[in-house]
Design a protein around this nucleic acid. Structure first.
Lengths: 352, 352
DNA sequence: CGAATTTATGAAACCCGTTTCATAAGCAGG
DNA sequence: CCTGCTTATGAAACGGGTTTCATAAATTCG
């Protein structure tokens, strides 16, 4: 590897001081045209690129942010990330992606990794941190964990996406999942369904809780009974969706005519299990998801779902973080986006 | 935000020099037990975290790498990334994710963005860079672009995943797509297919070229004619797959009995179009993909595909990069992985 | 043309760690 | 108790920029 050129090298060869070089680099003070040209020439000649570490050290700003998420392999997150990326780039930030890899391991490890990443990000002097899911999404978040996040928040601006840390005052960008889940359920009720199940998610995670809450509210409002044995949690993956649907179909008695799934992946798994079991979706069984990941529009039948406005979520979070970093104006603690019902092919009136 | 504690603060309060603080931080020289305890106590008390910028500045290593990819929203990349992440974390690296956003724009913009990111990464003093797809995957890569990459490679170790820059000597980790595409095609031929089409990809991208090459080789070896009007490019998305399949089905004359798709997304789109057109897959039409993204196992019917060993690809690339960075041993320029045929439900003998 | 400004530039401090080199302290052996 | 060696510690340089402050040069004005 070539050893890099520094301002000192440039200054020497141009017969000026480093201060002058710095000035032409940053346009921070007038420099005589001839001098400027000479220096600029050398910069081009050597393709000089100032060392961002040194610059950040004194400027106390790095233009780097950290993004912590549980599993990049879950298609929800790349969508959010795409929104984040877009806005961050526009504002001149680059970002560390910190994947805590929730998919492969138990939740304890995930928290450990989250802690590690938080520490690393602080050491690397990021200007801000965005957390999606994870600890902050655990409903029964322990005091200790909440404290750690509070400590972090004292050192660096923090924005949560779709997370909720009880009793804490953090900046959050959320979509109103309760209202959304209500809308989904009402859509099914409106089609004539009365026997509706709910599957997927983790009961200790706030997103699941909120979605389930919306489901219950809609049922209650329509004066329909909620069958507790038709509420089955277990995760957010396609595999889990299949298993949960299998279990539902294996139960005694009349099956539900519609199933609200905690997210799209579970919904896709549910469709698979239903089709494998010889049912026709939506004729025999209506199925809905939540998230509106790209694949939801690509399965057969196309999945009716709740758009969580992933990209907008990402963009908004990046904006909020930027405002916090630049301290230009006070920012609301809570920004709420409205989700949107996307009606596709996986829902129809019940056959009977 | 709290203003951060520094080694100087610690040193002062502990009545020692910063050198001693540094020594207990890094265990780089013996320190009297009592002194060490006193300092460690203060470190804990203030939750002191050394500034990585300052440390990296003098150590000339940042523990950061850059990953440049065209579109995180394409599920192939998160899989590779998961492998990268795993290995990188193990080795103590964090990474910048640089998404050039190829999905939304023309290829010129993508290159511009790639250049920008390369510059930013160099300024930020990353220890190494991994590039997936993008410019390096363009077959007719211009001299200028090749030069830029060569320049970068002089400054920082560079590893390409599945890319090929003609006439250049870079470290690359690839899977043998030609052999893989042959295997896929031979699988179809073995089932009895004779009329096989190929859709998807971009003719100017090397991955498409290699996959098509494998297809042609298998056909030739089986002494089957390749119908050039059954080879249709146009992209890597589900949408493109649908369109291309529609076009294929709209053509005059006897349709193909099998279609090799350039990747899984195109394959999924192709299935959709075929089903919409009233065909049954695989009875009326066998369809294959390439990549083995998670969704390939989740569509109906499950997609027969070529596993590109995404995660292994990521892990291997991270390893190669690490070896280059640590200069511990010389590294082969080319590392080749063997892809694996994954037979699922979307292929069967032709109906006739 | 000399005084008063304005503009261009350099020296040095600073950011926050690590590392070298020198010195001081501690300790064993004679 | 003194010599010689090991161990513990501090002062200062260093990494590569930015910024302040002072000075030198150039310009305007009376």
């Amino acid at each position: 590897m070539m050893k890099p050129v520094t301002v000192y090298d440039i200054a020497k060869e141009a017969n000026v001081s480093v201060a002058t070089v710095s000035r032409v680099l940053n346009n921070t003070a007038p420099v005589k045209a001839s001098t400027r040209e000479r220096i600029q020439g050398l910069i081009n000649k050597y393709q000089f690129q100032p060392n961002a570490l040194a610059r950040s050290l004194i400027k106390k700003a790095t233009g780097m942010i950290g993004i912590i998420l549980p599993d990049i392999t879950n298609p929800f997150f790349p969508e959010v990330l795409a929104g984040l990326e877009q806005e961050a780039r526009k504002r001149g930030y680059t970002y560390f992606l910190c994947d805590t890899g929730s998919s492969n391991q138990d939740i304890k490890d995930q928290y450990k990794r989250e802690s590690q990443y938080l520490n690393i990000l602080i050491e690397k002097q990021v200007d801000g941190i965005i957390m999606i899911g994870g600890r902050i999404d655990l409903h029964k978040c322990s005091k200790e964990m909440a404290n750690e996040v509070a400590e972090v928040n004292k050192r660096v601006p923090l924005v949560f996406i779709n997370g909720n840390l009880p009793g804490a005052r953090y900046h959050r960008v959320v979509v109103d999942e309760t209202a959304g889940a209500m809308r989904v359920t009402e859509h099914l009720i409106g089609l004539g369904h009365r026997d509706i199940a709910f599957i997927g998610g983790y009961p200790q995670m706030s997103n699941t809780v909120r979605r389930l809450e919306g489901f219950r509210m809609a049922m209650e409002r329509a004066e329909l009974p909620v069958r507790e044995d038709w509420i089955n949690h277990g995760g957010f993956s396609v595999q889990r969706g299949k298993e949960l649907m299998d279990r539902l179909l294996g139960m005694e008695g009349k099956p539900p005519t519609a199933v609200v799934c905690a997210n799209d992946l579970v919904g896709i798994g549910a469709i698979k299990a239903a089709v494998k079991a010889g049912l026709q979706v939506p004729r025999d069984l209506s199925i809905t998801g939540v998230d509106d990941v790209p694949m939801a529009a690509n399965v057969i039948p196309e999945l009716t779902t709740l758009s969580l406005k992933c990209r907008e979520l990402g963009r908004t979070a990046a904006n909020v973080l930027h405002l916090l970093i630049s301290k230009s104006e006070p920012v609301e603690l809570l920004t709420t986006l409205q989700p949107e019902l996307v009606i596709r092919e996986s829902t129809s009136p019940p056959a009977g």
